[in-house]
């Protein structure tokens, strides 16, 4: 099997001592995927940090149509007076977790101050809701246009069908169990198998691309009073504006979780190879050396 755009690398690989394999660069990521990937990195970084600035203006989450100070919040990040100092506390339901130094109360300009998320996690670092909103809404547009370009390309070029949709064999429980076991032992596919994403990867990417990211946009729109007038069904889908705000926060948390795992996998499965493939498009795999 010879990919027209792949080429062999001159230097033999470490396992080449046995004379069995050599490294070969295969073309993995088309230009549009690489560009939209890095644009997405920038957008998600700014959207998260400006989003936390906006959250800090009212650090409580409710369920339903309304929610304010007097209403029961099920997530709440607050500061309480504690003698001459303050302590931060994060409440999830009836569970209260002391989070002084990180959530509720954290260092700002050398003093412990009242802030839900710390200054190093917000844009701007100081408290400024209006600026946070400007950054959030501008980059929301960039994120949506970038995402649309990616999705249109993915459908038109058959990218999703060929690379991301798992086949029936891959979805078989025994196969999935095997992959999960391999992942847990940090054993990554080699050789021809490494040409393709594995099933767990495919499922993770598909859920982020088609569930979590669209959910962020839809719940974001539901927080807009004008959009609720234009598309009132948004309120029915999410059970009210405050539910939508809560889902927006939870979904953002899941995306942050995905990014942590994604970056960990990139580091563990060959950081330079992965980075090169997302910059130049070329990914090195080990193939059998032909005589």
């Amino acid at each position: 099997m010879f990919h027209p755009r792949s080429r062999s690398v001159g230097k033999p690989s470490s396992s080449d001592v046995a004379g069995a394999t050599q490294k070969k660069l295969v073309f993995r990521h088309p230009l549009l995927v690489r560009l939209t990937h890095w644009m997405n990195v920038l957008c998600l970084f700014i959207l998260l940090l400006s989003g936390l600035q906006i959250f800090n203006a009212h650090p409580s989450l409710y369920w339903g149509k309304y929610g304010a100070d007097a209403d029961p919040a099920f997530i709440d990040i607050r500061a309480y007076r504690d003698g001459n100092s303050i302590r931060g506390e994060t409440r999830i339901g009836s569970l209260a977790i002391p989070t002084t130094g990180f959530l509720g109360a954290s260092e700002y300009n050398g003093a412990l101050s009242v802030r839900a998320f710390p200054s190093w996690l917000t844009i701007p670092s100081y408290r400024d809701l209006s600026t946070g909103r400007r950054w959030h809404f501008f980059f929301a547009w960039v994120f949506v246009l970038n995402g649309l370009a990616y999705v249109i390309y993915g459908i038109a070029a058959g990218h999703f069908r060929r690379k991301l949709v798992p086949n029936t064999n891959e979805l078989a429980p025994s196969h999935l169990a095997h992959e999960i076991a391999d992942h847990a032992r940090l054993r990554f596919p080699k050789g021809d198998k490494a040409r393709h994403y594995n099933t767990l990867q495919k499922l993770a990417y598909l859920s982020v691309i088609f569930v979590l990211l669209p959910l962020m946009v839809a719940t974001g729109l539901t927080m807009s009073p004008a959009m609720d007038a234009a598309w009132p069904w948004l309120l029915d889908v999410f059970g009210g504006r405050q539910s939508a705000r809560t889902i927006h926060f939870i979904s953002a948390t899941l995306i942050v979780g995905f990014v942590f795992v994604h970056v960990a996998m990139v580091l563990l499965s060959g950081v330079w190879n992965n980075l090169r493939s997302m910059v130049t498009g070329r990914y090195a795999i080990e193939v059998e050396k032909h005589p």
Binding site: I54, F55, A57, H58, S60, Y62, K65, Y66, G67, A68, D69, L129, R133, M223, P225, D228, R241, Q242, R245
Partner: peptide, 12 residues
């Protein structure tokens, strides 16, 4: 109607 504050809370 629902009153939506720029801070994020709502009241009806």
């Amino acid at each position: 109607t629902r009153h939506d504050c720029v801070e994020g809370w709502s009241a009806i």
